[in-house]
Design a protein around this nucleic acid. Structure first.
Lengths: 147, 147
DNA sequence: AGGATTGGTCAAGTAGCTTGACTATATGGC
DNA sequence: GCCATATAGTCAAGCTACTTGACCAATCCT
């Protein structure tokens, strides 16, 4: 594989990721939520049973201060609330509100819609193969693209 | 394909793109260039024959002011220079200096190195297939992931 | 020729992150 | 049981890379 191809691959990855991210966010906004892309990835971590600020920070690849600010923002908009942590008095458990769940579902719908465009081009099998390979490459990488 | 899978795919794409981007940048820095990830994508546009600030802005998906600031930065670091545009007295052609070319080659090497890690895991055939599919999906999308 | 468009820069404002400093709770060695 | 150390979280300040807005000069269109 030539050197220049590797850069092109990177560019394609970034373009694909950016495109998808923006489509999802547009879809969420179109469904009436005042959101930005980071929300969806935060929700993905918070969804099952909530998480601490530090967990969230690790998941998003930012400092815990930044994660805390994001949580402030989400609280202000009514998507999550901070509760005392059952097993640790220092920590606080951040959990989704009903509105937060609604926004999460909207994000998933929008994501499915955006990916559908790819399925139309490549077919479901190919998209799934793509997905599998990506997961094998970057199983637990930080979400944040960062440049 | 389920809705939640679509979000996971997006996350995997972002993680892969972010991982690759950071590895490339680390590689470039290790080769002695004071660079940030945006440089590589700028160089990709400037490399053949140079480009105007507006071209660059379109390619990177930012305002022309932002692109102009990036060019300022690149000039200050000696990677590019602004020349009068041969066919348009308003425009200026931004071209790579010798140092700029050296940094471009470093970026391509680093990219190849980073992708090699993927080849080791998936095999060359699979990586190439991945690449082809990505290009079919996002042929000329903006580079900038933006969140 | 002259209004509208385009390429570029200057200036100011800002979102979203960072680093640094601090408090409160928890943990582990002795 | 105590103290040193580590961890969860917040507050405050600073900074980077972007944005919007205003503007000038050259070009295009009719």
């Amino acid at each position: 594989m030539q050197n220049s191809e590797a850069l092109a691959l990177t560019a394609a990855l970034l373009a694909a990721a950016g495109d998808l991210t923006q489509r999802i966010n547009d879809g969420v906004v179109a469904r009436g939520f005042e959101a930005r892309p980071a929300y969806g990835f935060a929700f993905a971590r918070l969804a099952p049973d909530g998480a601490t600020v530090t967990d969230l920070a690790t998941h998003l690849g930012v400092t815990k201060q930044a994660a805390s600010q994001l949580v402030d923002e989400l609280v202000r908009k009514g998507f999550v609330e901070r509760r005392p942590h059952p097993g640790d008095a220092r920590a606080r458990l951040v959990v989704l509100t009903e509105r937060g769940w609604a926004c999460t579902r909207a994000a998933e719908e929008a994501a499915a819609e955006a990916v559908q465009g790819w399925v139309d081009v490549l077919g479901e099998r190919e998209v799934r193969a793509l997905c599998d390979r990506l997961v094998r490459i970057a199983p637990y990488g930080r979400i944040r693209p960062a440049w």
